[in-house]
């Protein structure tokens, strides 16, 4: 029997689900291999009670998210976290862990009624065991398909753990630091092919900080290139505010 698949969102802008709808060429092949039981953005109806694979987008920002995620983990044999929000806390994570009410207040006025049960944002890993990770903002559809292949074959999660620089070198892209400009590729997880830098935009770290990144050395490099180390730390807050590496 084809594995039953659900796609759902927590706190996010649905950008990764939009990416999935963009896989026009491959979507039909993929749909031949799975039974799509629920897709928040693209199907009507409700989440079924039972399914095998859950694809989850978005960060956890409310107690309702925590409860939903708990049920998902109990139900699904495989949970796939897609996108920066689900993997690192992403954009919702910018709010940080301190003075949550103060920050909501600054945006929505005193005692806002939005986001009932709100809590400091966290990635999925903080609550449940995530079996497969597809990082990035938004996800790359090619990478998503490769991961889905691995899920269907029962292979291990193999998100690349090196940093971006080797991809940049392979693309023959001039290093931003050679021009005295900040780039987070020095510490960011590879796997996107360093697409932004090859288009002339510095890496913003959307794939998360690589597990073996050398932040201390990266800060020294930034300073040597004329970029204050604090600028690097600030830039890291866009997608990696919740990652415990800023010390």
């Amino acid at each position: 029997m084809a594995p039953r698949l659900v796609v759902l969102s927590l706190a996010s802008d649905f950008g990764c689900q939009v990416q999935l709808t963009n896989m026009t060429a491959e979507l039909l092949d993929v749909l031949g291999l799975v039974e799509l039981s629920y897709w928040q953005l693209a199907t009507s109806g409700h989440m079924p009670p039972d399914y095998d694979v859950a694809i989850v987008e978005g960060a956890v920002t409310t107690t309702e998210h925590v409860e939903l995620l708990g049920r998902v983990r109990e139900t699904a044999a495989v949970v796939i976290a897609i996108g920066a929000c689900a993997n690192t806390g992403g954009i919702p994570g910018i709010v940080g862990r301190e003075d949550l009410e103060g920050r909501y207040g600054a945006v929505y006025g005193p005692g806002p009624a939005v986001a009932t049960g709100r809590r400091a944002p966290l990635p999925l890993d903080a609550f449940i065991k995530v079996d497969y990770h597809v990082p990035g903002c938004p996800i790359d559809t090619g990478e998503f398909l490769r991961v889905l292949s691995r899920v269907l074959l029962g292979l291990s999660d193999r998100v690349p753990d090196m940093t971006m620089c080797a991809s940049c070198k392979t693309n023959e892209t001039v290093c931003f630091f050679d021009e005295g400009r900040l780039c987070l590729g020095l510490v960011t997880r590879a796997g996107c092919g360093a697409r932004c830098t090859s288009l002339g935009r510095a890496c913003t770290g959307c794939r998360g900080i690589a597990p073996d990144a050398n932040l201390a050395s990266a800060r020294e490099i930034a300073v040597r290139a004329g970029v204050p180390a604090a600028a690097m730390d600030d830039a890291l807050r866009i997608y990696n505010a919740l990652t415990e590496v800023h010390a």
Partner: peptide, 13 residues
């Protein structure tokens, strides 16, 4: 090792 970024840029080029 303290300086190295482990990035592999050296190998690529």
């Amino acid at each position: 090792g303290e300086k190295c970024l482990g990035c592999g840029a050296c190998s690529m080029v």
